[in-house]
């Protein structure tokens, strides 16, 4: 039976390689991880962005460069206003009278940033004043930026779709080519066929998750926990592939199901990141939420075996319920 399972999986790999789909599906998350790795250092590096008129003295520019990104314009007058009116959030600055400054803003910049810029200039203009208090900045030594933390968890969970997509594509193709009915008369048990078809859905998320974490350069992760969390993600992947694959006979419904699928995934992940904690119970139905929760805790180095196993158990339970509810439909779809 094992050889038959591998043969079925091997057939899907060959078919995928022929169409380059497997290549796309496998490479897409790695490419995304590389792009993310390139973006991480620059996101949040410059909170305040300024364009300064040539009238501003070099000493001021030097000061502003310690607090944000400064673009020194070559032409004066209109050029500053043109730059401020561009679509990004850039404030303009020009000298106004002896030692004074004029901040030029468009009006649609991030709220509060104009006040911050004004205060920073107040600090410069009044630097000779004796202040009654001191300010210092310290930290607790946590170097993982939120973009890397969330980016890794989002990529790993989101990529579960790709494993499912391979199963789905192969099933719809088999249906279109009528090879599914041929399988029913072949000397392969239904169980071997399902496992053979599902194997890629498990293997692909595993490759992706480890690859993404390695590319992003995480240190000190508990890879045992990572493996258990990925197992739950792989289960979701298999669930997606089979449910959509067997329920859709034609290309439009398969394609639209894929689009619809993005709704719960994006809602669960974005909800987990952006919603205030009290709204999180709204997402408890979603296996993506629990998988994301495990991955997020793992990269934050605060996961415990208890939590990872609990979350995996919940995903397992949700997957089992959905499979049980749809088992007849899946069996019928495979005929």
């Amino acid at each position: 039976m094992f050889r038959k399972i591998l043969r079925i999986t091997g057939r899907d790999v060959r078919s995928g390689l022929r169409d380059n789909i497997i290549v796309y599906v496998i490479l897409a998350p790695f490419l995304s991880a590389l792009i993310l790795r390139g973006l991480i250092p620059s996101v949040g590096a410059n909170v305040l962005q300024m364009a300064v008129d040539p009238s501003v003295e070099p000493a001021v520019v030097e000061y502003l460069e310690t607090i944000g990104k400064v673009e020194v314009l070559e032409a004066d007058g209109e050029a500053l206003e043109r730059r401020v009116r561009a679509t990004d959030d850039v404030f303009g600055l020009r000298q106004a009278g002896e030692g004074g400054f004029e901040i030029v803003k468009e009006g649609n910049e991030q709220e509060g940033m104009d006040e911050i810029f004004e205060l920073v200039l107040d600090a410069y203009v009044n630097q000779d004043l004796e202040l009654p208090m001191d300010a210092l900045v310290s930290d607790i030594g946590w170097k993982l930026p939120p973009l890397k933390q969330f980016g890794a968890s989002v990529l790993v969970v989101f990529m579960s779709v790709f494993g499912g997509m391979v199963i789905l594509i192969n099933l719809v193709e088999e249906k279109q080519d009528n090879t599914l009915s041929a399988m029913n008369v072949a000397p392969v048990s239904r169980k071997a066929f399902v496992i053979g078809k599902g194997l890629l859905g498990v293997v692909i998320p595993v490759i992706h998750a480890f690859g993404v974490l390695l590319i992003l350069g995480f240190e000190g992760l508990n890879y045992g926990m990572v493996t258990v969390a990925i197992f739950s993600i792989a289960l979701i992947s298999v669930l997606i592939g089979f449910v959509i694959g067997v329920m859709n006979d034609n290309v439009i419904s398969a394609a639209s199901s894929m689009k619809v699928l993005f709704v719960p995934i994006l809602a669960s992940i974005m909800g987990a990141i952006f919603l205030a904690d009290k709204w999180n119970p709204l997402l408890y139905w979603s296996p993506f939420y629990w998988a994301f929760d495990s991955m997020n805790r793992i990269v934050l180095l605060e996961a415990t075996w208890g939590v990872v196993l609990r979350n995996t158990g919940i995903v397992l339970a949700i997957t089992a319920v959905v499979f049980a509810l749809l088992s007849r439909r899946i069996a019928r779809g495979l005929n």
């Binding site: 310690t66 107040d122 900045v137």
Partner: peptide, 27 residues
């Protein structure tokens, strides 16, 4: 003395911006 306690992932420019904003406010 005001000590702003951050996580540690904040960029050096953000740290300086925070400090100067506070000083500016004080002035």
């Amino acid at each position: 003395t005001y000590d702003f306690v951050l996580q540690g992932y904040e960029s050096p420019k953000l740290v300086e911006l925070l400090k100067q904003t506070f000083i500016g406010d004080l002035t």
